[in-house]
């Protein structure tokens, strides 16, 4: 369960942004998570209230957008939406594919009270 340490790292980043903007409080934190990042979105969500207690992010809403796993085939050039453990082209069954999305772990945006 590494989501708690990822949550601590998230809160550090949010604190730095809030400080830079001389903000009083954080209202909303938006993340984008792909399943191939290795982060479990629901565990992250559960860790957040614990990790944010006593920080400027306490009480903020955490919104997590979960992104799909999409690949482009290097053989036929077409795109497919796939399962996380089968990055195989739906069209020609080739396994030479390139990940287009699905491994993101991004702090997308924050909404601050100033």
């Amino acid at each position: 369960m590494h989501e708690l340490s990822i949550c601590h790292s998230l809160i550090k980043q949010v604190e730095a942004i809030a400080l830079e903007q001389s903000s009083k409080s954080v209202q909303l934190i938006q993340l984008q998570i792909g399943p191939l990042s290795g982060i479990d979105a629901s565990l992250l969500k559960h860790s957040f209230p614990i990790a944010s207690t006593g920080t400027i992010a306490e009480g903020a809403e955490l919104l997590i957008e979960q992104l799909p796993v999409n690949i482009r085939c290097l053989n036929c050039g077409r795109e497919s939406s796939v399962e996380i453990n089968r990055l195989v082209c739906h069209h020609c069954q080739h396994t030479d594919t390139q990940l287009l999305s699905g491994d993101e772990m991004l702090l997308h945006s924050v909404k601050l009270e100033t």
Binding site: S109, L112, T114
Partner: peptide
């Protein structure tokens, strides 16, 4: 990305990895 609404809220687009540190 740094726009401010009338009610004193500010939205900031970050787009950084959660593990950037």
């Amino acid at each position: 990305k740094l726009s401010r609404t009338d009610n004193g809220q500010q939205s900031i687009t970050v787009l950084k990895s959660l593990l950037s540190e």
